[in-house]
């Protein structure tokens, strides 16, 4: 199934940041979002994930199909790595966590409390969470922060395997992962300061 975003306008803090975003993501494909800081990558991803409503435009094929991975990992410091993953697996409907542990080399760490992990290890556990959800569309916001070269390779491998299995992914990232992926530069979609798109502050202008 295809994720189809048409003519999307998104706002942050009542001000439109991106307008007219149109993108199409087929099964087995990945899309990399590029743009300077503040371009609206996070806002776009949160809107597609359904965490905030779009000002305009439509998003088809996202509901109940996306797994969202943000800057924070969603790990509990007082639970072990495997307990954390098993919890998210059960929330998304009882899946096996061994594949996810293996993909990010978390087997040796499975009984460590998440609070005692290093930043990179936490990040790996957070990324492994996406695998246990078994959702077809991954939305990833700066997934490689604090990962070393080996871990980035693990991540690229996991994304490749996900795509090969018919999944798809949208990534906001600045580094080259060596993935077969299209790139979408968000700069042309930037909302003009005087544009009127139904943002909530416009009534006052």
């Amino acid at each position: 199934m295809t994720l189809l975003v048409q003519n999307l306008t998104v706002a942050r803090g009542g001000v439109p940041v991106l307008t007219g975003v149109t993108l199409r993501l087929d099964a087995g494909k990945a899309l990399i979002l590029r743009g300077p800081n503040g371009a609206g990558k996070t806002t776009l991803l949160r809107t597609i994930a359904g965490l905030q409503p779009p000002l305009r435009g439509t998003i088809d094929g996202a509901e109940d199909r996306v797994a969202y991975g943000a800057h924070a990992d969603g790990l509990k410091a007082m639970l072990s790595v495997s307990e954390n993953l098993r919890f998210w697996a059960r929330v998304y409907g009882e899946h096996d966590i061994t594949a996810a542990l293996a993909a990010y080399a978390l087997e040796p760490l499975r009984d460590r409390l998440a609070g005692t992990l290093s930043a990179g290890q936490k990040r790996r556990a957070g990324l492994a969470r996406l695998m246990v959800t078994q959702r077809p569309v991954w939305l990833l916001d700066e997934p490689t922060v604090s990962l070393d070269t080996d871990a980035v390779a693990m991540f690229a491998g996991a994304v490749d395997a996900h795509l090969a299995g018919g999944g798809s992914a949208i990534l906001a990232t600045h580094i080259d992962l060596g993935l077969q992926a299209e790139t979408l530069d968000l700069t042309p979609y930037r909302a003009a300061p005087d544009a009127r798109h139904g943002a909530s502050d416009e009534a006052f202008l």
Binding site: A49, G50, L51, D64, V66, A67, Y68, A70, H71, A72, D73, G74, L75, K76, A77, W88, V91, Y92, G93, R129
Partner: peptide, 14 residues
């Protein structure tokens, strides 16, 4: 909220 769990819960199937 701080560790991002709420974002994930809000997009979860429950």
């Amino acid at each position: 909220f701080e560790d991002g769990s709420l974002d994930v819960l809000a997009t979860a199937p429950i």
